[in-house]
Computed example of a mutant assay.
Amino acid sequence: MKQVDLNCDMGEGFGVYHTGSDSELMKYITSANIACGFHAGDAATIRRTVKLALEHGVAIGAHPGLPDLAGFGRRVIDITPEEAYDMTVYQLGAVQAFTKSEGGTVRHVKPHGALYNMAARSRQLADAIAEAVYRVDPSLLLFGLAGSELILAGKAIGLHTINEVFADRTYESDGSLTPREIAGAVIVDAGRAAAQAVKMIKEGEVQTRQQSGFILKADTVCVHGDTPGALEHVQRLREALEAEGIAVKKAGNGA
Rank of each mutant, 00 (worst) to 15 (best):
K217A: 14
E232L: 15
L231V: 15
A120P: 01
I46K: 06
V198I: 14
E205T: 14
V186G: 02
G103A: 11
K2H: 14
H233F: 10
D68F: 00
Q210S: 14
F214K: 15
T99E: 07
M87T: 04
T105Q: 14
M87K: 10
G41F: 14
A240E: 08
L6N: 10
N7L: 06
D219M: 09
T161I: 03
H108C: 08
L115A: 09
R121G: 03
L69Q: 04
Q210R: 12
E242Q: 14
A240M: 00
P179L: 08
E181G: 00
Y17H: 15
D127A: 10
A243S: 11
K51C: 13
I151W: 10
I162Q: 11
S101N: 14
M26W: 02
G175D: 03
S122A: 04
L6I: 03
G113Q: 12
H56T: 08
E203N: 13
G225I: 03
Y134T: 06
F214E: 01
E164A: 02
A128R: 06
H108W: 10
T170W: 02
A114V: 00
V109R: 12
E239P: 02
H112F: 02
I129M: 04
V89Y: 13
Q96T: 14
A94C: 08
E24R: 06
K202G: 00
A153Y: 07
A120I: 11
T178M: 15
M118H: 07
R48P: 07
A156S: 13
F14C: 03
L150K: 09
V4I: 14
C222Q: 04
K51E: 15
V76P: 00
A59Q: 10
P111D: 04
V16P: 12
P81T: 13
G158C: 10
K110Q: 08
G61C: 13
A197G: 02
R209F: 13
T30D: 03
G57N: 09
K202I: 15
L54G: 05
D168T: 00
C36T: 03
R121H: 10
A218K: 01
A40I: 03
G229Y: 06
